[in-house]
Write a protein that binds this DNA or RNA. Structure first.
Lengths: 110, 110
DNA sequence: TCAATAGTTCGTTATTGTTGAACTACAGAA
DNA sequence: TTCTGTAGTTCAACAATAACGAACTATTGA
């Protein structure tokens, strides 16, 4: 089963986005997804490996329901993409501004 | 007594600011303080009159400890000012960007 | 079919938010 | 000075949310 809830562009709220990004772990998840600019599985985007799977899953659900990421099933894993266009359309400059201030996590920009 | 805790400019963190602003009530408090651009007592800046004093007090404490506002005692009330310069120095454009998206609360800009 | 992998859901525990009541601090009046 | 009213804070209780491990589902490959 596992139905993914994705708000439409217009249903993305400022409070929702800020609340989702107010958690350091989620901020790092989003940051690495933006710098990668492509799909990432939940495990790939995990900010630290010792985090419980259930906690990670919860963070992705929050990001998803805030409209920050789009998730779809691809085989055994979930492919997550940042909804950069939607966020930009809704709150121009917001994501860029916020992410510009947080430190690079570890991504190698291969 | 009542010692106010104000982080120094450098101790203001992005997560702290985002967490403080991720609450709709606090967002409205900050918004009205910015548009007023002057001191406001806690009661003046209250987003809705039916909110419990203790809740309001807690919101102001969070904003204060996040470095968003500066509070000082003035007679029987507390004068709160937004630390716009500090936030701007630390995270240029952040406050302006965020506040630009949230609706005007009610302030009449007298 | 069986085992392994990627995530989700559930139940428990810990942390945080909300509220009314009691408290502190100050201002003005008597 | 003392008394009263006002502005906020602190405290204790309860409610909501977050983190975790364990059990579960779905898919892949042997």
């Amino acid at each position: 089963m596992v139905q993914f809830v994705h708000p439409s562009r217009d249903d993305i709220t400022l409070e929702g986005v800020l609340a989702a990004l107010s958690d350091p772990m989620r901020l790092r998840i989003v940051k690495s997804m933006v710098s990668r600019h492509g799909c990432m599985s939940c495990t790939e985007a995990a900010p630290c490996p010792e985090m419980a799977k259930s906690t990670l899953s919860n963070h992705f659900r929050i990001l998803r329901e805030a409209g920050l990421i789009h998730t779809e099933k691809k085989g055994v894993e979930h492919r997550n993409v940042i909804r950069q266009d939607d966020i930009e359309a809704r709150f121009p400059g917001l994501l860029r501004t916020i992410l510009g201030f947080c430190d690079e996590p570890h991504q190698g920009k291969d």
